[in-house]
Design a protein around this nucleic acid. Structure first.
Lengths: 338, 338
DNA sequence: ATGAAAGCGCTAACAG
DNA sequence: CTGTTAGCGCTTTCAT
């Protein structure tokens, strides 16, 4: 493997000159530069980024810490859309992405900052972390620039990108209200997700503003899982026959809810309206097609990457809040009269 | 940032001893080892993998070179399933994955081996490469251990994992034949995919064995794209009214074909049977649900990673061929009589 | 059982 | 414009 030393020898100059020529410094004569360039090409030289990173103390590498890269997550490809966005932006820079694994027990033996420091990543993007994840406190304490997805924590070196979950949920519930529904349930995620708290708040706000009473027992947690949501929905609708609509904090859970409803002999949307959240790929393909609140996951990743690179270039950590959009399909309808 | 030098100073020993103690060498007294370990913990030490990699000349990093990490690929999440499999295996090792980008023009300025050598990856997994990709010839020429997905190239340092595409395609066509179809078309991918060639061969073999004549004009290329397949299918079925079944080289194309068929007022499967390939997530959700040949994409990634790590540990490059499975759903039916 | 010294490939003062 | 020198953090002979 060719090194700058080899080039220096071949060109009859010092390694310093080679280094400077290759890195485009101005204080090298055109003649020697050309000579060095030619030899480098001829010798098929590739710089060793490890060596460079070591001395420069930055690796031009960002870490991508995702918890949702599992088999079960393939269905709602939230994680992948975000990753694609990240990848898309990073591809335009001279950074590379290193994939960190958080779902494995092995990796869990390492702390967040160990993970980052060992590989000397310049910055990190975190995605899919629960609010009680020990990594989270570390993120704040560590001094590694970091962008969080859907986690509202900010400091001078940590920013985040999210969507307006409160308003998004509100729009969903308002849609149900406008259809005349008054007996509205909610299938939330779990207590360890910021978005769950926010979407719950949106639910409350919409209901309060419309002066519709809230039944606490009608708010249940489906853990963002299709199966869990199905089970909880079955219990819920079996017990409370008067519910006419349900707002689900994710499309995947909405799918589970619809399954339960079918089991119970209830039709969607004729008997019960169901609205989801996310607008996953499946939403438009299932039958009935899912009415939902769409969030642009690709853009979330893209913005996160953009912000991180910005920070690495010396700019401040920011907060980016993306807009959501109500997409009306077939799973919601006006409430039945009588 | 703590270094072994700091630890050495604090422990009153040399860096050599620290290095040996930390790496579990036997020639360190239990007493000093314990002391060093304690100090390391206390100082919150993390090894610098860059420095280690530099001197050891291996980075414990594998490159993942995927071409399908694009917005449009989200629909058929083949790429992601493979990635998840890779990730799953790698998580159990002490390797990390670095994501290389091939879709960007920027990265394309670098050759394959430049990409790999710069980051000093120990090995690479390639996925989604076309047969005419210049990277491919480089793979063979370069001396970096490499595992290809769905590309049958082998040497002492390059292995591959694939599925039995010939047999898979054969099973698909045989399924149609068993349903009584004799006028069978094929929507293939493009000429730059190995799998296309193989699936075409499977098509030929099945037809030949059943003594059913092949109409060359009934074999068209949909470029693995839903839209393209739709357009080509529209032309095809408009022109040839007697086709009763079509084998598509991917589910996504099957979806496009079904759209075209609907446009033409043809019912699936009553008028035309459609069988896909891949078993993507959508296959079971669309209506009619897609009959298809399933391949285990997760396992492909998993096996690829496993093989690569094996190779890095000194074992030989191999070939792994996974089985496919016919999944009968609703898009195929017996041929209409008369 | 431990340490001194060399070196992985590169960059960066500093000096000329 | 170019070279000398030092050093990034680590591993590894080779002595002792």
């Amino acid at each position: 493997m060719t090194t700058i030393k080899d080039i220096a020898k071949a060109a009859g100059v010092s390694v310093t000159t080679v280094s400077r020529a290759l890195n485009g410094y101005s204080d090298v004569s055109e003649k020697t530069r050309k000579k060095i360039m030619d030899i480098a090409k001829q010798l098929n030289y590739s710089p060793n980024t490890l060596a460079r990173s070591l001395v420069m103390n930055k690796s031009k590498t960002i870490g991508l810490l995702v918890s949702g890269m599992t088999r079960s997550a393939l269905k709602d490809n939230f994680t992948f859309e975000v990753m694609t966005g990240v990848n898309d932006y990073i591809a335009k820079t001279d950074y590379d992405v290193i994939l960190f694994n958080t779902n494995s027990t092995k990796q869990r033996e390492k702390t967040y900052s160990q993970l980052c420091r060992e590989r000397r990543v310049d910055g990190v993007i975190l995605q899919g972390m629960k609010t009680d994840d020990p990594y989270l406190t570390e993120v704040v304490e560590s001094d590694i620039p970091c962008v969080l997805i859907d986690i509202p924590i900010q400091s001078d070196r940590v920013g985040y990108v999210t969507t307006d979950n409160v308003y998004g949920a509100k729009k969903a519930v308002q849609h149900l209200l406008e259809l005349g529904h008054r007996h509205i349930a909610m299938m939330n995620g779990h207590d360890y997700a910021f978005v769950s708290k926010q979407r719950l708040q949106g639910f409350y706000e919409a209901m309060a503003e419309a002066n519709v009473p809230i039944e606490k027992e009608w708010i249940v947690n489906g853990d963002f899982s299709e199966e869990m949501a199905e089970a909880r929905a079955y219990e819920l609708f079996e017990k409370h026959k008067n519910i006419t609509a349900i707002f689900c904090a994710s499309d995947l859970m909405a799918l589970g809810v619809i399954k339960a409803l079918k089991q119970l002999g209830l039709r969607v949307p004729e008997d019960v309206s169901v609205i989801g959240y996310d607008d996953i790929l499946l939403a438009s393909y299932v039958s009935p097609a899912l009415t939902t609140i769409a969030q642009n996951k690709f853009q979330m990743g893209y913005e996160a990457a953009s912000m991180l690179i910005d920070m690495l270039e010396g700019n401040e950590a920011k907060v980016v809040t993306l807009r959501t959009q109500l997409i009306v399909r077939e799973s919601t309808a006006p409430v039945k009269k009588g």
